[in-house]
């Protein structure tokens, strides 16, 4: 029933991200033990598990928040050692979460182009090209079918779902290599979550692989093609969605069934 990750049938293209035998201790707590996973273009991996299973720790190691005690992370085949989230971000790995920092009083398009403004050089003075940035943002959002009242609206006035959609769209647009979504549905209503699920599916099909952490297994089931289940810091199940049912996943999370090699 379960195809373990290392033996997973894969096309021979290179994984975007490889996590190999990661272990992490916090004092006496073994947060992660020998965790491995691979993610390819087009994948949405559901990283599932109960509270304290080690999901966040794993995400934070991938995103450069802190280093692993043991194990290695490879991005496009190259070993990486991020010392900070900004290094990971520069390499193309970003975590998007409910309260991802944005400039709430700045407009959608300003947030979209922040740090990458389109400018005209006038005697060495960089003048922003607002109209072009507005049009550019509108086009990207339209391609991703993200609907907003206006790109000129302050981003702080939009809903949490819209905000996350913009951040994800921005990350995708500027050449992100892998997105880590940390509980994106935590504070969203049903309609908004549905839009979010669609966006995740669209964006992954456009080539951005996604690791999705969520407690909502039903939602995860709707978008993921693969899953990795953690329990007490260990991978207790991993494989392709088509081989399992929601019940199987729940059983693995709670430990009602166990699979050992």
């Amino acid at each position: 029933m379960i195809i373990l990750i290392n033996g997973a049938s894969q096309s021979n293209n290179q994984p975007i991200l490889t996590v190999k035998n990661i272990s992490k201790r916090f004092g006496n707590v073994q947060a992660l033990k020998d965790v491995s996973l691979e993610i390819y273009k087009g994948d949405v991996i559901g990283l599932l598990g109960d509270n304290g299973a080690g999901k966040s720790t794993l995400i934070k190691i991938i995103a450069g928040n802190f280093p692993a005690d043991e194990g290695e992370v490879f991005l496009e085949g190259k070993k990486v050692n991020f010392n900070s989230p900004s290094e990971a971000r520069a390499a193309g790995i970003e975590t998007v979460y409910q309260n991802s920092p944005v400039c709430i009083n700045a407009t959608v398009y300003e947030n979209f182009y922040i740090g990458r403004e389109l400018v005209n050089n006038f005697l060495g003075i960089k003048l922003v090209r607002n109209k072009e940035m507005q049009n550019g943002t509108m086009e990207v959002l339209k391609n991703l079918e993200i609907s907003l009242p206006s790109v000129k609206a302050e981003i702080g006035l939009l809903s949490g779902g819209q905000r996350q959609a913009i951040i994800l769209g921005r990350f995708f647009h500027w050449g992100g290599k892998i997105a880590l979504l940390d509980e994106p549905f935590a504070a969203l209503g049903v309609a908004e979550s549905r839009k979010g699920l669609k966006l995740i599916r669209d964006i992954s099909q456009k080539g951005l692989p996604i690791i999705l952490i969520t407690h909502n297994i039903e939602y995860a089931f709707q978008v993921m093609n693969k899953f990795v289940i953690l329990r007490h810091g260990e991978v207790v199940g991993a494989g392709e969605k088509k081989d399992v049912s929601v019940e199987d996943i729940v059983s693995l999370i709670t430990g009602a069934i166990e699979i050992k090699e």
Binding site: P101, C103, V128
Partner: peptide
């Protein structure tokens, strides 16, 4: 604009 961004959200500005 950077002055506004830095005042609005320093982390988001730094991340950018």
């Amino acid at each position: 604009r950077f002055i506004y961004f830095v005042g609005d959200n320093r982390e988001a500005s730094y991340n950018a």
